[in-house]
């Protein structure tokens, strides 16, 4: 493309994507109605509430949890979540001995069907650079303290496996329904940058 180096793209990304979409639509290579539908799906249907349902099911159904840890892709599909950037899933469990945290240092690989599209900080340089070499320092920035006698286990998901953390179920939630539990599960607890705090007494709906 050196011969076209004089044709520098404009700096405004809004103009550039309008131009590109219009050109591809004119060539009948994309359908703008399909583009709308793709955007709508990720804004309204796919997000961390999906992952929270997986976690709450695993907390309340030991057989489901066993299936989830053995073949995550299949077990997650039981709840209706599958597909792009979750084709080959692995679920890793936080325990008294191990705290897991997930990153993609080379780009921004993330389990879309269960967590939706990643937040800006997950895709940006500070997190990707530092969580592999100083995970405890990074976790502290999220207000998460991991005790010295717990192994911090970093998953740098640069290949095609996508990772979801199964956080620990907080104390004081005995007898809570799956739905009530799912409401406690944060996105960051499934990335591994957060844990789930014990709910205040009497918080159960």
């Amino acid at each position: 493309m050196a011969e076209h180096a004089h044709t520098a793209p404009p700096s405004d990304p809004e103009l550039r994507i309008k131009a590109l979409e219009s050109l591809l639509a004119e060539k009948k290579l994309i359908d703008p109605a399909a583009v709308d539908a793709i955007i709508e799906t990720y804004e309204t249907k796919i997000g961390p509430r999906n992952g929270a349902r997986v976690v709450a099911r695993a907390w309340t159904d030991p057989e489901y949890k066993a299936r989830l840890l053995a073949d995550a892709t299949k077990a997650i599909a039981e709840l209706g979540f599958s597909g792009a950037q979750g084709e080959d899933m692995v679920v890793v469990e936080n325990t008294e001995e191990v705290h897991n945290v997930v990153v993609c240092t080379l780009c921004s690989c993330y389990p879309w069907p269960t967590l939706g599209l990643p937040p800006v900080w997950y895709k940006a340089a500070p997190y990707r650079a530092r969580v592999v070499s100083d995970p405890r320092g990074v976790l502290l920035e999220f207000g998460t303290v991991v005790s010295d006698d717990v192994e911090v286990r970093v998953w740098d998901s640069n290949a095609e496996l996508r990772y979801l953390v199964l956080p620990r179920r907080p104390e004081g939630t005995d007898g809570w329904s799956e739905e009530q539990l799912a409401a406690l599960v944060s996105r960051d607890s499934m990335i591994g940058t957060a844990t789930i705090p014990t709910p205040a007494p009497g918080a159960a709906p």
Binding site: W121, A124, P126, S133, E141
Partner: peptide, 14 residues
Amino acid sequence: DLGGMHGFGPINPE
């Protein structure tokens, strides 16, 4: 290929 680099500052989640 950012893994292990220093100097990018705080993470600042929104």
